[in-house]
Computed example of a mutant assay.
Amino acid sequence: METKKVALVVGASRGIGRQIAIDLARNGYAVVVAAKTTSDASTTNPFPPDPNSPESTINTVEREIREAGGTATAVPVDTRDFESVQPLVGRTVEIYKRLDVVVYNSGAIWWASVEDTPMKRFQLMQRVNPEGLYGTIQASLPHLKRSLRGSGRIIVVSPPIYSRFFRGKTAYAMGKVGMSVLTKGLAMDFERQGVADKMAITSIWPAVAIESGATRAMLLKNPDEAKDLRRSTIFSDAILAMLRCPAAKINGRLELDEDFLRTPEGGNVVDFQKYALVPSSASGASGDKWEPPRRIMPKVLPDLSVAEQDDEGKRMNSAAAGKERAKI
């Protein structure tokens, strides 16, 4: 019997991350559920808890997966601390003997102007967002390269790169766009190393706002906003489609969930009503024509390449230079 592929989902205690972990398990993955929030899931009542509430933790998600017949282990982690990230990856490989997929969903949010973003908030976002991702990838890469036939995959929750994203949330955008730069740069590393036919890193971002812990407070104040939200299943469906794609077709892409699902690689999906959060809006039961939720992302995004894309000049390698100096 073939051993299950192993997925590490970082930021999986609630909302989108929880849905990703549950759907990976439903599709045959052994899942390590990682985040800071823990609890005694055996005493959680009612169970399962609201998936977008603080009562949803890595332990309740593990219990949900196990009670549904899946394989899961909850492992706490503080992504701000590389000394916490390394044992997380080590524990994953210790338990399951392999690592095939890493999904990085951890994120800290503060949307405000530069003037209204305190230094502590700025530092928190940079540590959780780009630094946490970088540390997770650094710790995981050796194991991903040793995965079945060397076909490790990394999925990053970060946006396409375009100027409007910076407006009104510059400090947040610096970190999230930095994560997308990491996606592009590591994809180029895979190409240079000749492994892009097996290894791939891809970024994904919602085209329409998704119900999550972040939107829960908004809905409590403005229930009517629900009509412009989608269920988190659209995100996990897009990620599963990405993982089914040949690595070379998906490596380095910065994708939106809906737009990717519409492509041949995503399954040529045309029905998005099933993802609408408000059932009456999705079914048209009111008699009105169904109107899709408001799209928060542009329909056309800029091409980041330049005419001189392949002209790097003399390539520098600081790591190699450091090794040469050490020999002297």
Rank of each mutant, 00 (worst) to 15 (best):
S147T: 11
L144E: 07
P130S: 11
T73F: 04
S140C: 00
K97Y: 07
G132H: 03
G107E: 02
R98F: 10
M174T: 13
I95S: 01
I201G: 07
M125H: 09
Y104N: 02
I154M: 07
T92W: 05
V157C: 15
F122G: 00
S106P: 05
W110N: 06
T202H: 12
M125W: 06
P160W: 04
I201M: 12
R167M: 09
V103T: 03
D78N: 14
A207C: 08
F190S: 01
P142C: 11
K120P: 08
E94P: 02
W205N: 06
T92Q: 03
F166W: 04
T202D: 03
L99Y: 05
G150F: 13
A74E: 07
V181W: 06
L124M: 11
L88W: 01
L133V: 03
P130L: 04
V128F: 04
P159W: 05
P87D: 00
R149V: 02
R98H: 07
P130A: 12
M119E: 11
R164L: 00
K184F: 01
T202M: 08
W205K: 10
L148K: 15
T79N: 13
D189V: 06
T92M: 07
G152I: 10
I154W: 07
E115D: 08
K145M: 11
S147Q: 07
I155F: 12
I204S: 06
M199Y: 11
Q123H: 10
V89T: 05
T170M: 12
V89P: 06
Y134S: 15
R164Q: 09
T92V: 08
P160G: 08
Y162L: 09
P130D: 01
V103L: 13
D78L: 09
D100W: 01
T92L: 11
L133F: 08
